[in-house]
């Protein structure tokens, strides 16, 4: 069922991860002891309701947020800060508005292929623009592109860096459902073609089930933790229409939705209790 089910190689290891935020004297513990392994060539979705810490987790893996304990490693090497082997795709695209599509990608390529000749770089950039079908927009500025096109630039830029691990922080969150579906398919295609290891943060159950090999559902009691791990039983390549008609898919979707709903309610009652205890 999974591409390489048996001799899976560990790519990313999260061990005893701790994270807390301090605000006006109070420390707010987010993660206390989180453990997680991501395998090579795997597509993992981190699923959670808002406030479940899923973006924080991804940003810590990206190195954009510091950790308060435990350790993170990729290919056995400790993660101490941001690095180009863990490229991030941002929800609001994070394209530089004064640069064209080509130059936005070049900015990243210049950093990671500093040894390469200009000609090689140019070919590399062109190849990645073609990969997301944006040849006609090569010299356009981000302001001239639609949201879906902007995120395709974001994806092209990230893949041009050739990361070991691609981190996506709700990359399709700001898009309409149809553009979203189209981009989901495109991301899957890239996943098949390049055997890219991907971590996707999302709150959309259907998106997670459609795309991921494994879903990690986060829940929040006092702190955030892994509530459930779902091995998605559907064969790749996946066809969204067929899946929607499959009873197994619908069952799994409804089950996961109810699970997330119960996690969300749990968090809210916990929050209320905490508010009450503060007043007493």
């Amino acid at each position: 069922m999974e591409p390489i089910a048996n001799n899976r190689k560990n790519l990313l290891e999260v061990r005893n991860l701790q994270k807390q935020y301090g605000s006006n004297g109070k420390t707010n513990v987010i993660f206390e002891d989180l453990n997680l392994t991501i395998y090579e060539n795997e597509f993992v979705a981190i699923l959670g309701h808002s406030g479940s810490g899923k973006s924080t987790l991804l940003r810590m893996i990206a190195g954009l947020e510091h950790i308060d304990g435990g350790h993170l490693s990729i290919e056995g090497k400790d993660i101490t800060g941001p690095g180009k082997e863990r490229m991030m795709i941002f929800q609001n695209y994070a394209l530089l508005p004064w640069l064209s599509v080509y130059d936005n990608i070049k900015l990243a390529v210049d950093e990671v292929m500093s040894e390469a000749s200009e000609k090689e770089k140019k070919a590399h950039i062109k190849e990645h623009i073609a990969m997301v079908h944006l040849e006609d927009a090569t010299h356009k500025k981000p302001s001239e592109l639609s949201g879906g096109m902007k995120q395709r630039v974001g994806i092209a830029r990230a893949l041009a860096v050739q990361p070991l691990l691609l981190l996506m922080d709700e990359p399709l969150g700001a898009l309409d459902p149809f553009t979203r579906a189209k981009l989901q398919d495109q991301i899957l295609e890239l996943y098949y073609e390049r055997h890219q290891t991907i971590m996707l943060v999302t709150h959309d159950v259907e998106e997670a089930l459609l795309m991921a090999d494994r879903i990690i559902v986060l829940k929040v009691d006092e702190v955030a933790s892994i509530g459930k791990v779902i091995d998605v039983p559907f064969e790749h390549p996946r066809d969204r229409k067929k899946l929607r008609e499959s009873p197994q898919f619908n069952e799994l979707r409804n089950e996961t939705l109810s699970l997330m709903e119960s996690y969300f309610e749990q968090m809210q009652t916990n929050n209320k209790k905490m508010e009450v205890s503060q007043f007493i």
Binding site: A62, L64, K84, M88, N92, A94, L96, W98, A108, V161
Partner: peptide, 23 residues
């Protein structure tokens, strides 16, 4: 996020000033 992009691709700080912060 502009700066996060620069950090993820490991752009040196002096380069960030001229390529990202100034523009």
């Amino acid at each position: 996020d502009y700066l996060n992009v620069a950090r993820v691709i490991e752009m040196p700080r002096w380069k960030q000033i001229f390529k990202i912060i100034l523009p």
